[in-house]
Amino acid sequence: MPDMVLRLKDLQTHFFTDHGEVPAVDRVSFSVGKGEVVGIVGESGCGKSVTSLSIMQLVPSPPGKIIGGEIQFKGEDLVQASPKRMKQLRGNEIAMIFQEPMTSLNPLFTIGNQLQEAIRIHRKVTKKQARIQAIDLLNQVGIPRAEAIIDEYPHQLSGGMRQRVMIAMAMSCHPDLLIADEPTTALDVTIQAQILRLMKQLNEENNTAILLITHDLGVVAELCDRVVVMYAGQVVERGTMREILKQPKHPYTKGLIRSLPKLSEREQKLYSIPGTVPRLGVGQVGCRFAPRCEMAFTRCFQENPALYELENGQTARCFLYDEIEREGHPDGGKTSIGSKGT
């Protein structure tokens, strides 16, 4: 295992709403190594964005609050970090880009103003130096006519160009970790490929670790070394990109991969996982995915499954991989009492 840049341990971010407490991020653990690209995959509302905002300590509060767990960034626990320390880290050592390039830049300031600001918050440079650096950054992310673009306003650029500006801004202080929250979702397919290639290039050139949040397994296949699959606020499966895509273990991951459209099987009706993501609540019993799971058996509704380690380092939150279940048939709920699933 390489040096870890980021290690989440049992992170819990809950939202306190009028309808009760919602565990948006429920004991999530995973790690990102130096220069590694890790993908978090899941449907909308599974807690992947809240996880990323928790790392940045930017969860809107109220109603959100980190109520437990650790976020180790280069050995420092960000949950305990002071607001002042977080300001030093944000944009400097941890940077973030967002889903909506159209609304993520302030419409009233020029590209240059916003880029130079990102540099000058963390580096003691003159305005002139910052401008030179900003033009340099724009060139690096492949923006043509950087000297002219720098004085333009966001509305004068296309979505792809704005996302490049966002990436340039994120890369301005050479962060160790870049969090990309659905960076290509709002873009055209051809532009998506360009942005992904650009991120890959920055990852390789600067050795910046990337935490990529996406619902698109195609994007994962393109970029990621390892994958974390999330469902309803929990990690349900972890493994390398190859393992997850070739031999998914959790029924949810299997469903996700089955629901990818394949060009070769045109006649077949596109598969979709039945049902919808459940509403989250505190103290729910049973596997969160059980109501939608084709493999579910009695135990799935009575106990919360743990993350079971498999031989190759892959993990899955499913009783199918509990030793007791594997010995017998995967339908005998009676045999499971007293198992280690918690």
Partner: peptide
């Protein structure tokens, strides 16, 4: 969103 971006910059 752009306010979140500014915060993410460390402002």
């Amino acid at each position: 969103d752009y306010i979140r971006t500014v915060r993410a910059k460390g402002a």
